[in-house]
Design a protein around this nucleic acid. Structure first.
Lengths: 348, 348
DNA sequence: CGGATAATTTGGATCGATCCAAATTGCAAG
DNA sequence: CTTGCAATTTGGATCGATCCAAATTATCCG
């Protein structure tokens, strides 16, 4: 009041009730009489009252702060931007607001922002962990009973919930697709060998090769950083070998576009002279030439589901770690030849 | 303590000092003895103390909440994702954390999230307003003395600071570029006529036309929604006319890609049969075929500057509205012909 | 060594809400 | 008119920090 700030007490005075009653109205309690409720609400509007959640949180458990933290490793990557949008959608509907922090793959940044979010009293956390994250990075949160959902990348050993896309099936399906088109020598391009995702996708590749009745050849696996530039180099190595592959699956779409580049540098046309399947289905996959056949993972859907899982745990008050695997699907476009009817379109 | 939660009092007891001293340590006050400081810090570490900013904020002005709000109209657009990253970078360094909300151009959502952020005690707000935002939407914030910085889009009549890119000069430069290449009939594609940005860019276009000694022809302005699909339709209209343009500037890159599509539908090759300049320089601009000549606006830089401006106002304690215009620059690629040095390939 | 001065430390009071046990009111039945 | 019971309302106490004026301790110097 003197401060210019309107409090429950000001409202109480103006409405001729006690602060307790105002508080009850604020919480939508059924105990308060309908007449008083409307009166109090009217006064709040008139005085321009702004609810002070900080004060309220002081008395309530942190589960009621109505804040969740979201930490992503690379927001400039549209995959993660979509993920954040999916989370945002769900948490806004639930009346929550989200702290969003980008770590740029820096573990130090990640530690900092998580600590900061904790100080601010988040009710839960969705995190797409920075590369190299370890269980210990989330130890404090977990032992404090805070619900944590890791997305996209697993955190080995951490007792947190997780929501990953089905990497194994995705890559298996990609290989199957190429095999059906008659390819017998199928390469695997890109990815860091020391990550869990790489291992899952590679396993899917191996199993796909086996299921197609082809022999697994370690010499056809070309690991590299999952970037366009490295993808180009990887395919160069592949095509320099004696017994060349005729097609390949890629760790992600960026690598796939690098493979495009690498092939063209050798005067080979992607989709004609060499078949390529990507992973992720980024926006450019639909507009590139040739449009990229790839494994779609629906990042926004993952975001939504992760947020729902987190909210469920927050409301339950108990953080039982559970692991969810979300389905992926093959989107056939033009990078494996054929299908020259439609210009490739992106799925929703 | 009983609650499982460690407070300043617990620390005080364990360290054998008063809670006031602990508070002083927390604030890094120079009044406290070096010995006690290290002792208190040690105890805090041992007991796993987590600072409760909510409690602290109760006694301090909202300028010290160390939270800023960021509201963007479309986070799935990489332009705005980059913007958010720029803001994040600066606020993290300043020890702030950001609420990030996506409005998807919904005014209702915008009103909701801003109210929610206010309840949570933000120190300031950076907003890329949803289409149709009016001064009244920010009235409450402004009259409460909260620093607000509008980016990318202006809010006519609102007493908020703003950070816009130099739309006029950008479009002027684009026209100048085409005129220098010998184009005499230059069209303008895309944009909603009732937006301030459209008017600024159109003015830059007109002035550029005049400066080149060409006559302004209203029939060469093809306004439409700033999307790829609409861009395609707009160029179709342009090419159906009697006196066709030979090149055009576009409201943004999305429209420019639509123009690509529209031209190809008429069996015209962009960059060869028709010259195109975009606006924004989105990531795809560099990888499209032909690579798009466009006006680069550096969204991340805008985000950084906006955050700096906001922090300045928060620290000053006074929110003087100021308007900043950030420079843009022409990035010449292949969509206006020539420049066939690089390995850029194209269909025959 | 005494007194002034500087350096530290400290106990309420306080911020703005919620919680809880207790008080008040309303109303129908006896 | 009471009494009993449900429906409402209410006054502290409280959450975990900061602020402030005042108390305590250390240090300096003639």
């Amino acid at each position: 009041m003197a401060n210019g700030r309107v409090t429950v007490i000001d409202i109480a005075k103006a409405a001729g009730v006690s602060k307790s009653t105002v508080s009850l109205v604020l919480q939508g309690s059924p105990l308060v009489n309908e007449g008083t409720r409307t009166k109090v609400n009217a006064v709040m509007r008139d005085l321009g009252y702004v609810y002070n959640r900080g004060a309220a949180n002081l008395r309530q458990s942190s589960a009621k702060s109505k804040i969740i933290g979201v930490v992503v490793n690379d927001l400039t990557n549209s995959f993660f931007a979509e993920l954040a949008v999916g989370i945002d959608l769900v948490v806004q509907d639930a009346g929550f607001v989200q702290f969003l922090a980008n770590t740029s793959e820096s573990l130090d940044r990640q530690t900092e922002v998580i600590a900061s979010m904790r100080e601010h009293g988040i009710s839960g956390l969705v995190v797409s962990p920075a590369r190299g994250s370890r269980a210990i990075d989330f130890k404090a949160l977990v032992s404090a009973g805070m619900p944590v959902v890791a997305v996209v990348r697993p955190v080995p050993g951490a007792k947190v919930s997780s929501l990953m896309s089905d990497n194994h099936t995705g890559m298996f399906t990609a290989v199957e697709h190429l095999a059906k088109l008659g390819h017998a020598r199928i390469a695997f391009f890109g990815g860091f060998e020391d990550t869990a995702i790489f291992q899952e996708r590679l396993a899917g590749y191996r199993d796909g090769i086996a299921a197609a009745g082809l022999g697994y050849d370690e010499g056809l696996v070309f690991a590299c950083a999952p970037s366009r530039a490295e993808g180009a180099k990887a395919v160069a190595r592949a095509m320099a070998a004696a017994d060349r592959p005729t097609g390949g699956v890629c760790f992600n779409d960026a690598v796939a576009f690098g493979v495009y580049d690498g092939l063209r540098a050798r005067r080979l046309e992607p989709g004609v002279d060499f078949a390529i399947v990507g992973f992720d289905d980024v926006i450019e996959a639909g507009t590139s030439v040739p449009a990229l056949t790839t494994i779609a993972v629906d990042p926004q859907g993952i975001g939504r589901r992760a947020a729902q899982l987190l909210l469920k745990q927050i409301n339950a008050g108990k953080a039982e770690a559970e692991a969810v695997v979300t389905p992926v699907r093959l989107v056939v476009r033009e990078s494996c030849g054929v299908n020259r009817m439609k210009p490739g379109r992106r799925s929703a």
